[in-house]
Design a protein around this nucleic acid. Structure first.
Lengths: 220, 220
DNA sequence: GAATTAATTGAACGTTTGTTTTATTATCCG
DNA sequence: CGGATAATAAAACAAACGTTCAATTAATTC
């Protein structure tokens, strides 16, 4: 009735995070009880409080790590000197690969923002804005270089992000389409949406060559 | 300590629905308590149960009415005999107008699906699928007529709906852009995204004439 | 104006909630 | 082997939850 044989703080902590992401994604933050989470980990509810001070801190921790992972994945992938079309392609591929691979934590980070305190919400939104800013910069550069025809850079960036992130709503791995096919199609749609001129990486009818990286794109 | 002067069932019921949509959109279904909802209406919690049997039935009622409204708005607007490009334009305009106008109930219908029982969830998803099917039919007709160039009709329909519905995440009435401007830009992006040939209602650079209906589009 | 119906209150029900406290045991270090 | 520390269980807390019930009053009907 106390410390159990084989118990290990690090393993428990990892199990808690994994279970929390899965449960919150499935039930929602408010609907998931601490006892439910504890049962999923195979532990009593009181034991959870070794790893975070409150339930909301757990949520914030999960969200912050998700955003940090997203920004880091982009930082490691982005082609710095390339032309806007190649940079846009890299952004789309990274975004889709990351979000498909982390469907659950994406769900959490997108749906549970309202459960954060004002202060914690601000921190998460700051990270999100920084990430979206990268896309706006690419679009702006593309317009200035005469490669894209866009009415409103900010609006287009939001539309693209909503479109791409929406993949997690309907995509299920192992069904009709592979990740590579989905990524290639979204890339083609993106290029047409921004009015990319058909040259360089794009084929004659406006579709874009798949860049042969979609399957292993998110090996962070 | 009983019936209050001036009390009226119909007015209370309407006030309950309005307050519920607003509160659930802001706090989430699980986070909103019946006492909170009652206080917003100016009534005791017990009085709510005159108008629906359980909290979940209230949620279901709000979602069903939202979906019925969406389908009815499209039914009343759709141009039956027109060509695919005009039908697609009508779909986009109706969708955006409806969702901007009903931001709160859209939020509820999109975010709180997991709080429904399996049976009620199925009913809502059936309505949603029927609505999305209309878009897929338009895209398919456009492809067959040689007007659109699309890789995957189903995937493109989902991408478009996610993109358009996403408007409610960032759009706030009375800020930088008007509803008409947003709608026009989304229409242009949609037409490029589906690879619409530049003829008929579309201008030379792929943008689409606004159809002069965006502002009064959602007078249901 | 009496009888009936509609609308609501206030109190109470048993559960469940997030969290704290205290005690207990496994593991690690010397 | 013994003391320190890490990790947990078990029990308890007040507060809040959705919902029910009986009592009470306003509005309506005849």
């Amino acid at each position: 009735m106390a410390r159990t044989t084989g118990s290990d703080g690090e393993k428990t902590e990892a199990a808690v995070r994994e279970a929390a992401v899965s449960l919150i994604a499935r039930l929602g933050y408010e609907a998931m009880s601490m006892r439910q989470l504890a049962a999923e980990v195979g532990v009593q509810a009181a034991a959870l409080y070794r790893y975070f001070p409150t339930k909301q801190d757990l949520l914030f921790m999960l969200m912050r790590e998700h955003m940090e992972g997203l920004i880091e994945a982009w930082r490691a992938t982005r082609p710095v000197g390339a032309d806007p079309a190649a940079r846009l392609a890299a952004y789309v591929e990274n975004h889709i690969a990351f979000h498909i691979e982390r469907r659950h934590s994406t769900h959490v980070s997108n749906m549970e923002l309202r459960s954060l305190s004002h202060e914690k919400l601000t921190q998460i939104l700051r990270m999100r804005t920084a990430y979206e800013k990268e896309l706006r910069a690419i679009l702006r550069d593309g317009v200035e270089a005469g490669l894209f025809s866009i009415e409103d850079t900010g609006l287009t960036a939001m539309a693209l992000i909503q479109m791409m992130t929406g993949v997690i709503v309907w995509f299920r791995p192992g069904e009709r389409l592979s990740i590579a096919e989905v990524t290639a199609t979204y890339l083609a749609m993106t290029m047409r949406l921004v009015g990319a001129k058909s040259d360089g990486a794009t084929t004659s009818h406006g579709a874009v060559r798949p860049f042969e990286r979609a399957t292993d794109a998110a090996a962070l």
